[in-house]
Design a protein around this nucleic acid. Sequence first.
DNA 1: ATTTCCAAAATTGTCGACGATTATTGACAG
DNA 2: CTGTCAATAATCGTCGACAATTTTGGAAAT
Lengths: 231, 231
Amino acid sequence: MNPPAVVRSATSSAGRAPLTAIVRDEIIRMIEAGALAPGVWVNEADLAARLGVSRAPIREACRGLEQSGLLSFVVNRGAFVREIDPVEAAELYDLRSALFALAGRELAPVIHEKQLRILAKLLDDMDAAADDGDLDVYYPLNLLFHQTLLEFTGNRRLLLTYQSIIRELHLFRRKALVTRERMSDSNAEHRAIYAALRAKNPVAAASLMEAHVLNAKKRIFQTIPSREAAG
Amino acid sequence: MNPPAVVRSATSSAGRAPLTAIVRDEIIRMIEAGALAPGVWVNEADLAARLGVSRAPIREACRGLEQSGLLSFVVNRGAFVREIDPVEAAELYDLRSALFALAGRELAPVIHEKQLRILAKLLDDMDAAADDGDLDVYYPLNLLFHQTLLEFTGNRRLLLTYQSIIRELHLFRRKALVTRERMSDSNAEHRAIYAALRAKNPVAAASLMEAHVLNAKKRIFQTIPSREAAG
DNA sequence: ATTTCCAAAATTGTCGACGATTATTGACAG
DNA sequence: CTGTCAATAATCGTCGACAATTTTGGAAAT
């Protein structure tokens, strides 16, 4: 008999975290790592065995992930990682642009020096990565830059909704053609946003941040769709 | 006996809907009907007995509702209807205003005559209700008007996100002081929105719709908090 | 070789059960 | 009368089991 996987020790001291939460995070991790690609079927028994738990916490976690748009259930066939088609991806980009603009409008009046320094550091790092043409460095920094802006607003709800949309958008697996030039262009937009925030100009920040997301949308859809979706 | 692949309708052939979905809808209904007030504990065994099912579908449904912000789980104590505090309510209003503005921006360029007539009818009905000072008629019409605008955009994702926020906001149970005058003011804003849409002016529509939600926010927070939450 | 059919295997949806944790009751002391 | 604390009851989180449904694999037929 296989010993239970070492999973139950997330918070050891007090009452341990419910298995459902652990499973939920693990599935999210697998999706983001690519171990669970869009369209792929989620085998409950298999996951249960691998995590050393029963199917109940698995199913509860999947129901949560269904609601957050990462999984979809088909009756008597189980749960599947959702596939985002171009139409829905476009809708998600529009949503994201509106939320990002809102973040800018809320952040500009209240941003302070310490926060600006953190952003400036990220901008420099991204420029360095762009000069090297190193997407593996640029991409996470880019995500972090956006997320940091959202966090600085102090609007918890806005951050959560934004993150949820980003996760879903991640299921739209069309790779944009990322060139050194595009990274530089993108970071130039970041610097314009930074300037508007530093100037504490809500209207400019909102406008630039909205445009920034819509430009990203354009770049994705201008890229010729690759033939890799079929499995 | 191989039916064409297209008509795999979920209605008749494949038996009944999963219990989880039924339970989920029932809990939502109870919340909206006030049978489950914010802060109230959701008794799993009780619900299971009343609906004639086991606890498994109940728990799965609750996990979904947790993710959509209507319930919150406390370890070893179960699920509770969430309570929205003023801070979070304010955040939700801001989100809602951004989404409503986006709807206006997207709808204005594409709205057509048939849709405008439907809106005009709603406006007239709301004015009638406002003249009568009948909130019980005005309030549902008001909800319908907003939802219809979202539907007309054709942006499914936007509609879903908006509805989710509205549901959560419903958990912030502070009653605004609704007078005949306020209903008239509100509907005057509706008519301004209608005019901007009819003129196919995205900028004006977005701006008016954003302001409309922010005015509603103001009205809620100007109302003196009532002593009814505790219990 | 392809299609049709049917039994076997796999999987889902749902249920009841059990230990662990939390809430409640009620005796008892101050 | 009030507060403490143990015994009891209620509830949660989790598990394994089972019927219904779907998928699989291969034999039979075209």
